[in-house]
Nucleic acid binder design. Structure first.
Lengths: 341, 341
DNA sequence: CATCCTTGCTAAAACCATTTAGCAAATGCA
DNA sequence: TGCATTTGCTAAATGGTTTTAGCAAGGATG
């Protein structure tokens, strides 16, 4: 006894009206001249039958599917990076949209397949998200629906959502200054001399620019700047171990939380206390930051808000071109000394 | 100059055949009697025009959308948990399907909305995934398409994919034994006496049962069993700190990686070396495990394989009822001593 | 030569919601 | 009263694909 799907025609029949009337009433057209009585009857009938519109049929007619493609190089590299999806998901849900999630692994062929699969399904918009790469590769295929770049940029699609790295960089330095940590400062993760000719991604360049701008504003300089191309835990550990053989820093500005974790390990081995001997501040607000002991003070990547904004831009009248910068907020934990004024 | 979509009719016209013929040829029907010449002409025409079928139209006609709903309480709680999605994604991609990802936050109302949204879109199947909760709440709504439970169970849907926790538990103990760590063993995270009346989820019960079975098989017992309802880093730290005041363990069997990380912190403070003084083994193969120093040996949750299997079951002729257990493999790092035979 | 089968193909219906064009009755206005 | 307008509603076309039913031509069979 398999139930047939309830169609609009069924609703109309029960309400004693035409499908036209039922459609107009249920889709909530404003300029319709149908009577209040008709409205009531149709809604009653729909409720009684448990009518749910067939999205495929609607899509066929209107070219709108109420679904959005979220195409990402990686679905999530960190728990916190999954905030990008989560934010998008909840904004989409709020707008009665659904997310088609596709992963490309950064591979051109898979990216092309993903875009085609999405377009075949009549998505109303596309989000091109980058978890790792910042400059997003895009195959040469036209995307005839609104598109926004998330956490990355590409010349073909002018609308993008990015963290406000410049301000984030400034905030990190400001926190250090507020905590009274102003000398024997070490920058962990980048050294312009060592990386001459290499190209750091745009957002990271801005983070660094923000840091330097605020340092300069306070008349401060780094005692040492340690370069590492990768920013993994092991790099942080190695760098700080080597650092400690030569000098005793008072503050470490780490370019991400994984580097900071490595620094914790090296400092722990050297029996240096945090933040008593060495203060740390970092970026990302990775899952790790809350696990560390003491907790790591860090400038959060606002993933959730970014994902949400991307959807909102897409669903808005017309995605405003340009970069939309989302503020990075400081998450204060125990790795900076508290100033007792 | 906006291009109109290329339709099947366009292809047929260019090929000089009927849409019927074109459809049959392009969908690759086996029992068709169309000439080889017709096949060639249609394929050539499709290629020339860059024809892509309209999935909405096809879904309308066939009730098949080549898309699958992935409905999860949380999209990802850990980077490694996102392996569930990633595995599903790649299997879906391989089968030319697309994943509709929906998050419920564990809320009944949102779960209902998610299922409805998915069914409205004619999904061919549903994966009900659990990242946190193991017993999945399900609203009382019929799901008229194949459904598989992923990383959780529910009486209404007999097909489920689960990690083989019992074997995983046994493996952990076996590794300890192989490494020669057989006395002063401590179980971190569970004590049956302290948790009397509390209900641990099914998979965790199995993990514990596997551990106890293998311990018994080797004639071993735990010197101490430490209970903690939550398995966060801080719990591991507190438990081990208190433990070290009273006794000096030689091996720690941690019920997850976060507890193990807490143990690392406490052991580090006490200047105990790993694995020299204390050996550790754990479960999950969380992101953390590779960050620790030395690396944490852990029994991996096979998220990727699980996600993949779920899709394969769904797309198979008929999802075989019953529990499908996916092996948990050991990831050897440095937290167990290496036996030099 | 009439009948039947096979081969190669097509016309048209069906899927379900939206939308354009328009009809009939009631009302308003002069 | 006569005409125009408004009100309340509907018939039918539309979107693109799949699928059922069946047609015409050619060959085989008796």
């Amino acid at each position: 006894m398999q139930k047939k799907r309830v169609t609009l025609a069924d609703v109309a029949r029960l309400a004693g009206l035409s499908p036209t009337a039922a459609s107009m009433i249920l889709t909530g057209r404003p300029d319709t001249r149908l009577s209040a009585e008709a409205h009531a009857k149709v809604h009653a009938a729909a409720a009684e039958l448990g009518y749910r519109p067939n999205v495929a049929a609607r899509a066929l007619r209107t070219d709108q599917s109420r679904s959005i493609a979220f195409i990402s190089d990686y679905v999530a590299t960190t728990r916190f990076a999954s905030g990008l999806i989560r934010g998008a998901l909840s904004a989409a849900d709020a707008a009665k949209n659904v997310l088609l999630v596709l992963e490309t692994g950064g591979e051109p062929a898979r990216t092309l397949r993903a875009i085609e699969a999405a377009l075949d399904r009549q998505v109303d918009g596309v989000i091109l998200a980058a978890m790792r790469a910042r400059e997003v590769f895009l195959p040469d295929i036209a995307i005839p629906v609104p598109t926004v770049m998330l956490n990355g940029t590409n010349a073909r699609f002018p609308t993008s959502v990015l963290p406000d790295e410049f301000e984030g960089g400034r905030t990190a330095v400001r926190l250090l200054v507020e905590a009274g940590v102003t000398d024997r400062l070490v920058l962990l993760g980048h050294n312009p001399e060592d990386e001459r000719g290499q190209f750091r991604s745009e957002p990271i360049s801005r983070r660094l620019a923000g840091i330097r701008a605020e340092m300069a504003a306070h008349g401060l300089t780094f005692a040492t700047e340690l370069s590492s191309w990768d920013w993994e835990v092991a790099n942080g550990y190695d760098l700080v171990r080597r650092l400690l053989r030569k000098e005793r820093p008072k503050g470490l500005l780490c370019l991400n939380d994984r580097l900071a974790f490595g620094a914790y390990q090296a400092l722990g081995e050297a029996h240096l206390s945090i933040p008593g001997d060495v203060a740390l501040i970092s970026f990302d607000n990775d899952e790790l930051a809350s696990y560390l002991r003491p907790g790591l003070t860090t400038i959060a990547l606002p993933h959730g808000n970014m994902g949400q904004l991307a959807i909102e831009l897409l669903l808005g009248a017309k995605p405003a071109a340009g970069e939309h910068l989302v503020p990075m907020s400081a998450v204060r934990r125990g790795s900076l000394p508290t100033t007792t004024l």
